[in-house]
C-alpha cells in the first residue's frame, strides 16, 4: 500500500531550526509495521533520520513513539491499522522526555522515577536455607505488572507528568505496586508512606491514558488505585486524597448522592483554613452566577434501600476479610 509518513524532525546540532514536519511517501506491505516503514525511509531515502529500535517484536521497549498523537511501540503497530491506503501517518517522539534527535528521547527521567521506588525485594528476618517461597496465586496476580518492558509509552502520555515532573508517574508506580504486593517483600509500610506523599499515588488524575497506551496490559492506573487502597488500609489517611475518597464514599453510602458542597471542605480537612480560604474566590464567583449545588443536600428517593444495600455489601466484605 501507498502511505505518507509525516515525521517530526529535530536536529540539536542545527540550532537555527526548530523542530519541523517532514513527509516521506513510500510503498509498504499491508503487513508492515510503522517501524518497518521508518527503517525503510532511513535505509532508502534519508539516512539522517534518527530512531531507536532493537528487537522488532515488542520485547525490548526501545521503539515507543507517538503515532497519530498517541504513544505506541512502532514495531507493534501495523501500518494498515493506523492509515488507509494513500493516507498519512504522523510520527513524533515520545512526550514528556526531552528529544535528543528526531524520534529519540532522553529516558533519564523515566529511569530516575523507577529508581525512586526502590524496585528490588527487601525481605526482613533470617534468610531461608533455599529460595524464598511465595504462593502461586500472588505471583500470577503480579505477572501482569511484571510484563512491563520499560518502554515509557505510559510516561510519554501521562497527563500529570506533562504538567509536573515531580510526579512519580505510571511506570514507576506500577513497579512500586509490584514490590508492595509481593509477599516476600517486608517494606510495605515505608513504601506506602513514601507513595502517599506529594508526587505519589494521589497525584494521578485517573485519566486512563497509561492504561490505553500500554502495549503490555500492565494497566498502571489500576495499580495506582490498588496502592491507594493499600495505603489507606495501612493507615496513611492524613492527606487530601484519602480524605476525599473517604468523604465521597460516606456521602454516597449515606444519601445515594454526592454532596458537592461539603466534599471539598472535607478533602482539605475541616481545620485547614488556608486551603478553605483559597476556595473562597471561586465559591463567591459561583455564588454570583447562581452556579452552585443546592444548599440542602437531598438524599435520593427511597434512600433506606440504598443504606440497606451498603450494609449488606459491607457485611459480606467484612466476613470475607475475617475469613482471610
Amino acid at each position: 500500500m501507498q502511505i505518507t509518513v509525516s515525521v517530526r524532525r529535530y536536529n540539536p546540532q542545527d540550532k537555527e531550526t526548530p523542530s519541523y514536519w517532514q513527509e516521506y511517501s513510500l510503498e509498504v506491505e499491508e503487513t508492515s509495521s510503522v517501524l518497518d516503514s521508518l527503517i525503510k525511509i532511513r535505509e532508502e531515502e534519508d539516512g539522517s533520520l534518527a530512531l531507536r529500535c532493537s528487537c522488532r517484536s515488542a520485547i525490548c521497549g526501545s521503539c515507543a513513539m507517538r503515532i497519530n498523537g498517541h504513544a505506541k511501540l512502532a514495531c507493534n503497530t501495523k501500518v494498515s491499522d493506523v492509515a488507509e491506503d494513500g493516507g498519512t501517518i504522523k510520527v513524533e517522539p515520545a512526550g514528556v522526555m526531552p528529544v535528543i534527535k528526531d524520534l529519540v528521547v532522553d529516558q533519564t527521567l523515566f529511569w530516575d522515577k523507577v529508581k525512586q521506588v526502590s524496585p528490588w525485594l527487601q525481605p526482613e528476618g533470617e534468610e531461608p536455607e533455599a529460595e524464598y517461597l511465595a504462593p502461586n496465586s500472588d505471583m500470577t496476580h503480579l505477572a501482569g505488572v511484571m510484563a512491563c518492558i520499560m518502554c515509557g509509552a505510559c510516561v510519554s502520555d501521562c497527563t500529570v507528568l506533562e504538567m509536573d515532573p515531580n510526579f512519580i508517574g505510571p511506570a514507576a508506580l506500577a513497579k512500586a505496586y509490584r514490590f508492595a504486593a509481593d509477599p516476600r517483600d517486608d517494606q510495605d509500610a515505608s513504601r506506602l508512606a513514601a507513595l502517599s506523599e506529594y508526587g505519589g499515588v494521589w497525584d494521578c488524575t485517573r485519566c486512563y491514558e497509561c492504561v490505553e497506551v500500554c502495549p503490555k496490559g500492565v494497566a498502571p492506573m489500576d495499580r495506582i488505585m490498588a496502592l491507594r487502597d493499600r495505603a489507606m488500609e495501612a493507615g496513611y489517611t492524613n492527606n487530601n486524597g484519602a480524605r476525599h475518597t473517604d468523604a465521597f464514599e460516606a456521602s454516597v453510602s449515606h444519601s445515594g448522592r454526592l454532596n458537592e458542597l461539603t466534599l471539598p471542605i472535607k478533602s482539605f480537612g475541616v481545620l485547614n483554613l488556608p486551603a478553605q480560604m483559597s476556595m473562597a474566590p471561586v465559591a463567591i464567583r459561583a455564588l454570583m452566577r447562581r452556579k452552585i449545588p443546592p444548599i440542602i443536600h437531598k438524599s435520593v428517593p427511597g434512600v433506606k434501600n440504598v443504606r440497606r444495600l451498603v450494609e449488606s455489601v459491607k457485611e459480606e466484605q467484612q466476613d470475607e476479610q475475617a475469613a482471610g
Binding site: W202, T205, G241, P264, S278
Partner: peptide, 9 residues
C-alpha cells in the same frame, strides 16, 4: 479529579 489534591497541577 485532583483539584482538591494538587490544585496547582
Amino acid at each position: 479529579p485532583i483539584l482538591t489534591i494538587n490544585e496547582r497541577n
